[in-house]
Each structure stands twice: as C-alpha cells, then as structure tokens.
Nucleic acid binder design. Sequence first.
RNA 1: CGGGGAGUAGCGCAGGCCGGUAGCGCAUCUGGUUUGGGACCAGGGGGUCGCAGGUUCGAAUCCUGUCUCCCCGACCA
Length: 491
Amino acid sequence: MSILTSKETDYAQWYNDLILKSGLAENSAVRGCMVIKPYGFALWENMRDELDKRFKETGHQNAYFPIFIPKSFLSKEAAHVEGFAKECAVVTHYRLKNDPDGKGVIVDPEAKLEEELIVRPTSETIIWNTYKNWIQSYRDLPILVNQWANVVRWEMRTRLFLRTAEFLWQEGHTAHATKEEAIEETEKMLDVYASFCEEYMALPVIKGVKTANERFAGAEETYCIEALMQDGKALQAGTSHFLGQNFAKAFDVKFADKDNKMEYVWATSWGVSTRLIGGLVMAHSDDQGLVLPPKIAPLHVVIVPIYSKDVAAREKIDQYAKNLVKELRSKGIRVKYDDDDTTRPGWKFAEYELKGVPVRVALGARDMEQNVAEVARRDTKEKMSLSLDNLAISIQELLDTIQQNMYNKALQYRSEHYTKVDSWEAFQEVLKTKGGFVAAHWDGTSETEEKIKELTKATIRCIPLNNPPEEGVCVFTGAPSKQRVLFAVAY
RNA sequence: CGGGGAGUAGCGCAGGCCGGUAGCGCAUCUGGUUUGGGACCAGGGGGUCGCAGGUUCGAAUCCUGUCUCCCCGACCA
C-alpha cells in the first residue's frame, strides 16, 4: 500500500506528500516558513559540509554578517532595490509591552526605530558596506568570503524547500582588483556548483548565463546551473553573479592599484540554497518515496533482521549484523541496524524505501544457513542474494554503482527531454506534450522573451556556456539569430 | 490582491440540508499471539466541533461577523 499520491496522478501533490511523509520538513505556524526536520536537516548538513570543503579548497573563508540591514543600504544600488523591495520583511520597533486594554502584548509605539531595519533578502549591501573598510590597497585583494546564513524573501506563494519565505543558503561575496579576475571567480564557482551537483547529488546540470530579464538585481552577468525535474520543468539550482563595479560604486569601495591610481573594486556573489533539496527530491524520487544518491543520503545502509521464535537463530543474526555494522562503519559507510522488535520487517522495508536509504540488507535464519543476505537497492528496487563473505565490500561497491546509475538515469531523462525546435508550432507542441528543455533560436530581445512567456509559460533558462554558434531565425519573430538558447517551464 | 476549497481526537475524514448523548479509519496505550513486503485478537484512553456573537428549552448543525490554512493566478531562488 502506498501512502503517497502518485507522480502520475498529481506531481505537485506527490512532491508535497513525499516531503511530509518522509519526514524532511513540514509547514510551521508562520505562513511560508518551514520546519526542517532532523532527516531533512541531515541532508542539508551533508550538502553543506561538502560544499564548504570545496569552497575552502578554492581559497574561501567563512564569515558572518548581520541578519539586519539598515533600510538606507538597500537603496544604494538602484537595480538591487528594484529587485528586492517588494519582498522584504521590515523591522520597525524593538520592544513589546502588555496590552493595557486586555490580555497579550502589543508593539510599544514608544519603541519605534529611527531607521527601519530590513531582514536580509541577500547580503550584498551590508557586506559591501563592510568591505569599504577592509579595502585600501591592491594588497587587500582579493577578498574571498562565504557566509552560511538564513535569508528572508516575503514570497506570495511558497512551497516546501522550493520557495519558502525564509531559507537557508550560502552566499559567497568576493572582491577583486580586476574585471578578468572577478569573471574568473564567477566562472570558477559556477564550476564548483556544477561538479557538486553532478558528483554528489547525481544531478546533471546545464551551465549558462541568464538573459537580461532573468539576471540578478545588480549584476552585470548572472551565470547559472539549470537542472531538469521529472515533470519536465527546469529548476535553477545555483547562481554565480559577476557584479562588475556596481556595488563598489554604490558603496564607494576603491583601492590604490600598483600605479597608485584609485580604482573601483570588482565583485562577485554566488549562492545555493535549501532549494537544492527540493531539486534532489524531484529529480530522483518515485511513488514509493525518496531515492537518495549515496553521497548525500543521511543513511547509506539499513540492516533489517528477520526474526523468528528461534532464539539461537536470532542471536546469530544479531551477532553477524553487529559485526557487519562495525565493518561498514570502518569504511565510512553510514549504517543502521534496525533491530526494533516492535515493528515487523514489511513495515521497515516500506519505511526505509520512503526515506530513500540506498541499500537495504535483510538477514533471516534462512539466509544465515545459506551464508547469504538479501540485499535490495533503492534506485532499481532490485533484490539480490549476496554472499556473507566480503559482504561489506560488495555493499561498498554497490553504493558506488547506485550513485553512478542515478546520475546516468537523470542524464538520460534530460537527454530525452532536450529538444531542438525550429518552428513556433513545434515549440508550443514540445512544451505542451513532453516539456523539458527546448533549444531554439531567439532574436535577443526582452520583448520576444516576455511574449513567449506569456503564451507558453516558458522562460529562457539560460544561454548555455558551451553553445556552438549557429545561424538561424528566431522561432517567434523570424528575426536573425546566431545561437540557440534554452527555454523551459521553470519552478 | 483576484478566483476556488477547507477548518470536527495526533493524522485523514463522516455527520450539517432536517438542531436532541460527537462518530469512523489510522496512530496511540495495556495484555497476548506473531515476525521473509506497512500483522492479528481482546481491552482502554483521547474532543470546550477555528474564534466571537446571535436565534433556541437545547447549536458541530441555523444566522451574522471574524480569523486561519490549502489550491489556482500575478511575484519569485
């Protein structure tokens, strides 16, 4: 019996059921804000730890900046305020008092702030205000800083992980002496994100740059990685922005170069968020529950004993299992021996499938006699009988196989949902029938982009970085075009 | 902010039209039998029916107001 709405029936409902039932997160008392439950947070910790390692390997350090931003800061960069003003939470008072007319508390009108504080929707402004004091000379550059933080964007409509009013993320903010170096940094971090997604999340992504319409508010160029979900919709999985000198100019951050000339500093910022968890879920999971790639799974292996009345057999199973646990742990494999006798094996099987544990080992008296264990993989649901000799090694290899298989499967799905089209009819038809990425010529204007969005809901996800030049005509207006861009309906 | 739907036990719901002891499934607790795909039997506990008024001898049910949540749109990582 399945407890999830099937993907086929209602993809959105399936996603929601899955997040709730698998125990990743739930809605909270605050509209639009979620509670990330221990299992979901364990996923985030694994992602965070690996990303953090990669940031440090590329020379970055962590720091922390305030959650509050003075209102005046946000307005210093014109495009930036335009982009975020509509979704900011504002702190206006600093004190409550007992309601003189009854029970409860009210905001103390005496405690109004001189200048309102914005709960950060992103930290460019407070950070660049800080960098101003950190940078005088070219010797102070580059500054390569990352922060792990929460941010708040007051979204109209929210969905667990994909779009919440508050979310967790990391934001890197770097300062450089030259434009070239800043662009190099922007691209380097995009590569870090892309390889992380592909190697750890088993999530193939397309690297590209955004059109002016989709660009980050305040950026000169927004690089992105785009992933494809199982319903044919695209998900922006990470962004890396070349900010030019916009923030340096807004916050007057100059440095003396080697020739003692004053120059504005060049900037980048880049981030990924808990949204990635939503992408991970939507890219791999099925009607039985989560399917997690081993490298990210909180638990790699669960061992389920099949007990019987035979006490001697039970002890034998326990003993073997405990040794196996020890051996797997010594190989760095996260394993749980579920010998809880209050639930039965069938219940556990279903439960761990729901939770997406990559490998399940069942051990019963019958197996022990034959010197085997039943090993089931979550990604293919295949069950096999493996020898107890060298079982830990077999499992270790199986985990690698699963990781690779999940990536291949996602990649194959994406290949099958990547369609080149050359006519407006085909464009609409592909979006309607199979979805996915549509590679089409575009005349380069925002007007056409907007019009296409209006008519099909599809937006330009990116102009791929490895795009071959190709003469063609815009699929919508027929105007000349020199390359294809990727359209998709997106989350 | 527009359009739809819903608030009744921890979760999912019925009851409402036609007012009269608040019910069902799951979960939970106790005891027992079980254990190879979400076990079974027996017994038990748990509710100011979103909130505030009103009508009435009597309101989950009728009336008025109000709040909240969910879904679809506009906005967005």
